[in-house]
Design a binder for these strands. Structure first.
Length: 152
DNA sequence: GCCAACGTTGGC
DNA sequence: GCCAACGTTGGC
């Protein structure tokens, strides 16, 4: 089982939205590096930190698990969707997604605190200019962030 | 294949 | 809302 961090803008889709939906597709990832991980590496049962970006309280806010691995993101073929990609070929889809299930909220671990923690210095998240929206998390980083919530 | 122009991300 | 940093596009 592997660990990941998924970014989302809470104004669009928050940890609370996920809690209400219980299970949701993680659609709309339109970045090749992130796509490759969603398509090839994120597996059933993997654990995910949900991270809120572009908002007042930026940071890790909860945990989800993968309930369905890698399948084509159908929104890429929907002209009405903001995630529509006219260049994607239905016979060879460009974008993939997974389904995730809400597990629990965490007390906010802010980006500021994560940046200040040397144990997390290798995370793409804390590096200047990083825009990766799906990233791997090592077991040590996962445990460190859990410890930082103070919830045990 | 280079790289300038452009659009987007995301913290602040 | 600003803007630096980044990824993508497309002309050549």
């Amino acid at each position: 089982m592997a660990y990941w961090l998924f970014k989302t803008e809470p104004d669009t889709f928050s940890i609370d939205t996920l809690k209400q939906m219980k299970v949701s597709p993680w659609e709309g990832v339109r970045n090749y590096q992130a796509r490759n991980m969603l398509r090839d590496e994120v597996k059933l049962g993997d654990q995910i930190f949900i991270y809120h970006s572009s908002c007042k309280d930026v940071g890790v806010v909860g945990i989800a698990t993968v309930t369905k691995a890698s399948y084509p993101d159908h929104f890429q073929f929907d002209p009405e969707s903001p995630y529509f990609d006219p260049k994607s070929d239905p016979n060879n889809p460009r974008w993939f997604m997974v389904d995730i299930e809400y597990q629990r909220h965490l007390r906010l671990v802010s980006l500021k605190r994560m940046k200040a923690n040397p144990a997390l210095a290798d995370m793409p998240l804390v590096k200047k200019g990083s825009r990766l929206s799906v990233m791997p998390v090592t077991e040590a980083q996962w445990q460190e962030i859990l410890t930082m919530t103070g919830q045990f």
